[in-house]
Design a protein around this nucleic acid. Structure first.
Lengths: 145, 145
DNA sequence: ACGGATTGTATGCTTCACTAACGAATAGGC
DNA sequence: GCCTATTCGTTAGTGAAGCATACAATCCGT
């Protein structure tokens, strides 16, 4: 009998976290390749998309939904603001908060990005049946929720 | 009827890549928290582990298996070598290559890291049944293979 | 009105991925 | 064997991103 046969954590390939990291790396790499033309990162597209779904969202809420701390959120919003894709506006209900909105350029950039996302997602999902995609998404959501 | 009901890619939460990124972020965060004491990153542990499984591995092969380019592999090997956890040695079969080995300190660090991995993996896997873990690993492998 | 909590901001440090270039060594075609 | 192309390690530079800390303004509960 071999030792450590019960838990199956004696080899690197048995580590779930390792596979998540590799899968993320592969997706990240294909993403940046797909988006090299329009020069947007995963984070930046996520921010644009989320602001599009929730105009006037506060930065802290943006960070919470994308699981970034305030400092990280700042740098991303700064970059997108410098590129003219979104704008800050002091919230009227709570003057501590900065409400974030897409500019017209931001809307256009997001539209362009979404068409790239379609291609990117097709590349990713071609490995799975629609049912498998549902299962995978549900499992991943268990991890990050 | 709503538009875009067919493909289900009209909302950010429908994007598979988005969930992979969030899940990776959550795992990464818990990992660094678990490993704050012994001060090793995911990448560094992966390298130590892989070298342990394949002593004398060339750097380029190390990078290939962990999906890093040569430059990135360099910086990580440099750090680990500077900390005395592994050592380089010119390969005899191919003098272009640098064979990488664990030092005794590297073996000890990996042992310590593996016990942390057990706790980390337990945190991660507590969301799933053993069968679900197998399914998830298999699906993630489809992405990064 | 006071004190604690929240939010944005600024600064600095670290990890990591990528590119481009270079030299050394190897492999393949002839 | 020789010339060329490729591979490997290395270095340097760029950029995104995460985290910690500190500070000021604002809000809220009491």
């Amino acid at each position: 009998m071999t030792e450590n046969k019960d838990d199956g954590e004696d080899r690197l390939g048995d580590i779930l976290g390792f596979h998540i990291r590799l899968a993320h790396g592969a997706v990240y790499r294909h993403f940046t390749e797909t988006f090299s033309d329009i020069d947007l990162t995963q984070k930046q597209v996520s921010v644009l998309w989320l602001v599009s779904e929730h105009p006037g969202l506060a930065q802290v809420e943006l960070g919470r939904r994308l699981q970034m701390d305030r400092a990280t959120t700042m740098t991303i919003v700064n970059r997108l603001e410098a590129r003219g894709l979104l704008r800050r506006q002091a919230s009227q209900s709570d003057r501590r908060k900065q409400a974030v909105f897409l500019t017209s350029g931001g809307v256009a950039a997001l539209d362009e990005a979404k068409s790239c996302i379609v291609a990117h997602e097709a590349w990713l999902k071609r490995r799975f049946t629609p049912d498998e995609v549902k299962i995978l998404v549900e499992m991943l959501a268990r991890i990050h929720d």
